[in-house]
């Protein structure tokens, strides 16, 4: 715990959002998924986003990953206003700057690990030889050097998630966004995935992690609590007493 809560020198701001809201209109009803979120994230931070179901964690994550556009508010990514980027620029940001890891892995089911990992390289226009080399390298890094020709259904859940992480990393993005990356894994495999993320963090990546689980959140260096589309708490490190589920805090 000691090292984890120690303050490191802060890098430049990579994500800067101010008063972000997101409304979903469903017929008559308007769902306010985010109600004004302000957040700054520096390079090489390790953040856990926690909160009850429906509090807007995934919505926020999609926003940060330039997959979704806010209803109102300002978002600057690496100093550039995201609202002013066109579709191709957004695609390029997602391709080069951001690596997504999903709860459900989202691998292409009929393609091999290698082919899956090559995908972002294809979209980046990398030559086939370099692509093969790079994808194999990254798969070896996540410990799947001997599984590159396996298809997802020939892999265990943990292995699948590692392929997905390799895919997220292959273009060397500075930011890794993981929405409940261990949600579909048992706790032991989950820990392995967390070790991998820890390693990335050590290497200098910015990690943003959405999770329900306290022991998973405990890996992060900063914790943001969301509730009903608002930030309820934002503090350094993981403080067991603070980071109890809200219900438990109020009941004690």
């Amino acid at each position: 715990m000691e090292t984890r809560n120690s303050i490191r020198p802060r890098g430049p701001v990579v994500i800067d959002i101010e008063n972000i809201t997101k409304d979903y209109v469903m017929g008559e009803e308007v769902v306010h998924a985010l109600r004004g979120v302000t957040l700054q994230i520096h390079r090489n931070e390790y953040i856990a986003i926690m909160g009850p179901s429906g509090s807007g964690k995934s919505t926020l994550m999609n926003m940060l990953g330039c997959l979704d556009t806010p209803t109102s508010g300002r978002y600057e990514f690496n100093g550039k206003n995201v609202a002013e980027m066109d579709d191709d620029e957004l695609a390029a940001v997602r391709n080069r700057e951001i690596g997504f890891v999903f709860q459900t892995f989202n691998l292409l089911p009929r393609s091999t690990s290698l082919r899956n990992v090559e995908l972002p390289l294809i979209y980046a226009g990398i030559e086939p030889e370099r692509r093969l080399e790079r994808a194999t390298q990254v798969l070896t890094d996540v410990g799947l050097g001997d599984r590159i020709h396996h298809k997802p259904n020939e892999l265990s859940g943990g292995q699948r998630q590692r392929v997905a992480i390799a895919r997220a990393l292959v273009n060397g993005p500075s930011i890794v966004l993981a929405d409940e990356p261990t949600g579909n894994l048992d706790s032991k495999t989950g820990e392995e995935i967390m070790d991998l993320l820890e390693h990335l963090y050590e290497r200098g990546n910015t990690i943003i992690l959405v999770t329900h689980e306290r022991d998973i959140a405990a890996h992060a260096r900063r914790t943001v609590h969301l509730r009903d589309g608002l930030i309820e708490m934002d503090h350094a490190g993981f403080i067991p007493e603070l980071d109890l589920p809200i219900a438990e805090i109020t009941s004690t």
């Binding site: 695609a91 997602r94 989202n106 979209y123």
Partner: peptide, 16 residues
């Protein structure tokens, strides 16, 4: 559909 979403998240452009 989900695959298309994934491809977009990985940086596929519309015209791709």
């Amino acid at each position: 559909t989900k695959e298309i979403g994934t491809r977009k998240a990985l940086g596929a452009r519309r015209r791709t």
